[in-house]
Amino acid sequence: MQAKIAKMQEDLRQKTVEATSGGGMVRVTCNGQQEILGIAIDPELLEEKDVEMLQDLILVAVNEALKRSRELAQEELAKITGGLSIPGL
Protein backbone atom coordinates (compact mmCIF):
# COMPACT_ATOMS: atom_id res chain seq x y z
CA MET A 1 0.00 0.00 0.00
CA GLN A 2 2.92 2.36 0.69
CA ALA A 3 4.07 2.02 -2.90
CA LYS A 4 0.57 2.81 -4.15
CA ILE A 5 0.40 5.90 -1.94
CA ALA A 6 3.83 7.07 -3.11
CA LYS A 7 2.72 6.63 -6.74
CA MET A 8 -0.53 8.47 -5.99
CA GLN A 9 1.41 11.40 -4.51
CA GLU A 10 3.59 11.62 -7.60
CA ASP A 11 0.51 11.41 -9.83
CA LEU A 12 -1.10 14.24 -7.82
CA ARG A 13 1.88 16.44 -8.64
CA GLN A 14 0.93 16.06 -12.33
CA LYS A 15 -2.82 16.68 -11.92
CA THR A 16 -4.15 20.21 -11.80
CA VAL A 17 -7.25 21.99 -10.63
CA GLU A 18 -8.34 25.51 -11.40
CA ALA A 19 -10.40 28.06 -9.53
CA THR A 20 -11.61 31.49 -10.53
CA SER A 21 -13.06 34.55 -8.88
CA GLY A 22 -14.49 37.83 -10.07
CA GLY A 23 -16.37 36.13 -12.87
CA GLY A 24 -13.17 34.58 -14.19
CA MET A 25 -11.06 37.72 -13.92
CA VAL A 26 -8.65 35.95 -11.57
CA ARG A 27 -7.69 32.33 -12.31
CA VAL A 28 -5.48 30.16 -10.10
CA THR A 29 -4.03 26.79 -11.10
CA CYS A 30 -2.88 24.37 -8.42
CA ASN A 31 -1.62 20.80 -8.53
CA GLY A 32 -2.73 17.89 -6.35
CA GLN A 33 0.17 18.56 -3.99
CA GLN A 34 -1.34 21.95 -3.04
CA GLU A 35 1.33 23.84 -4.98
CA ILE A 36 0.19 26.99 -6.77
CA LEU A 37 1.32 26.68 -10.38
CA GLY A 38 -0.02 29.90 -11.79
CA ILE A 39 -2.14 32.97 -11.27
CA ALA A 40 -3.72 34.77 -14.21
CA ILE A 41 -5.27 38.21 -13.83
CA ASP A 42 -7.42 39.79 -16.53
CA PRO A 43 -5.69 43.05 -17.55
CA GLU A 44 -9.03 44.89 -17.31
CA LEU A 45 -8.98 44.27 -13.57
CA LEU A 46 -5.65 46.08 -13.28
CA GLU A 47 -7.07 49.15 -15.01
CA GLU A 48 -9.50 49.66 -12.14
CA LYS A 49 -6.57 50.23 -9.74
CA ASP A 50 -8.59 48.84 -6.84
CA VAL A 51 -5.84 47.04 -4.94
CA GLU A 52 -8.09 45.79 -2.14
CA MET A 53 -10.54 44.22 -4.59
CA LEU A 54 -7.68 42.57 -6.50
CA GLN A 55 -6.24 41.18 -3.26
CA ASP A 56 -9.63 39.81 -2.25
CA LEU A 57 -10.19 38.17 -5.64
CA ILE A 58 -6.75 36.55 -5.54
CA LEU A 59 -7.32 35.31 -1.99
CA VAL A 60 -10.69 33.79 -2.90
CA ALA A 61 -9.31 32.05 -6.00
CA VAL A 62 -6.23 30.71 -4.18
CA ASN A 63 -8.26 29.34 -1.29
CA GLU A 64 -10.73 27.69 -3.67
CA ALA A 65 -7.90 26.15 -5.73
CA LEU A 66 -6.29 24.75 -2.57
CA LYS A 67 -9.65 23.36 -1.44
CA ARG A 68 -10.16 21.64 -4.79
CA SER A 69 -6.63 20.26 -4.63
CA ARG A 70 -7.27 18.75 -1.19
CA GLU A 71 -10.53 17.25 -2.44
CA LEU A 72 -8.70 15.74 -5.42
CA ALA A 73 -6.10 14.20 -3.09
CA GLN A 74 -8.82 12.77 -0.85
CA GLU A 75 -10.60 11.25 -3.85
CA GLU A 76 -7.40 9.64 -5.08
CA LEU A 77 -6.57 8.31 -1.61
CA ALA A 78 -10.06 6.87 -1.26
CA LYS A 79 -9.47 4.88 -4.46
CA ILE A 80 -6.43 3.24 -2.86
CA THR A 81 -7.81 2.70 0.64
CA GLY A 82 -11.31 1.80 -0.39
CA GLY A 83 -12.64 4.72 1.65
CA LEU A 84 -10.94 3.63 4.88
CA SER A 85 -9.67 6.45 7.03
CA ILE A 86 -5.97 5.92 7.73
CA PRO A 87 -4.51 8.21 10.41
CA GLY A 88 -1.76 10.48 9.14
CA LEU A 89 -2.81 10.38 5.47
Rank of each mutant, 00 (worst) to 15 (best):
E52V: 02
E47A: 14
I36Y: 09
R27P: 04
I36T: 06
I39R: 08
V28I: 14
C30Y: 02
E35I: 10
V26I: 12
D50L: 03
Q34W: 02
E48S: 11
A40L: 14
Q34T: 13
E35P: 08
I41Q: 01
Q34E: 13
P43R: 08
I39D: 05
L45D: 00
E48Y: 02
V26Q: 01
L37G: 10
T29H: 14
V51E: 09
V51H: 02
P43E: 07
N31G: 13
L45T: 04
L37D: 11
D42K: 13
G38C: 11
E48T: 08
K49Y: 00
P43L: 09
Q33Y: 03
P43Y: 04
N31K: 08
I41P: 02
L37Q: 12
E48D: 09
G38R: 15
D50N: 10
P43I: 08
C30D: 11
D50W: 00
R27M: 07
G32D: 04
E44D: 14
G38E: 10
P43S: 14
G38M: 14
E52A: 04
E47D: 13
D42C: 07
L37W: 09
V28N: 05
L54W: 00
C30N: 13
Q55A: 06
C30W: 08
E48A: 08
V51D: 07
C30R: 08
R27F: 02
P43Q: 07
Q55S: 10
E44Y: 06
I39F: 04
I39M: 11
V28R: 05
R27E: 07
E44T: 12
G32E: 01
L45M: 12
L54Q: 04
L45V: 01
V28P: 11
Q33D: 11
M53Y: 00
N31H: 07
D42P: 10
L45W: 01
I36K: 10
L45F: 00
L54N: 01
I36S: 04
L37K: 15
N31D: 14
E47T: 07
L37V: 07
E48C: 01
L46K: 09
M53K: 11
Q55R: 10
M53W: 00
Q55V: 00
E52N: 13
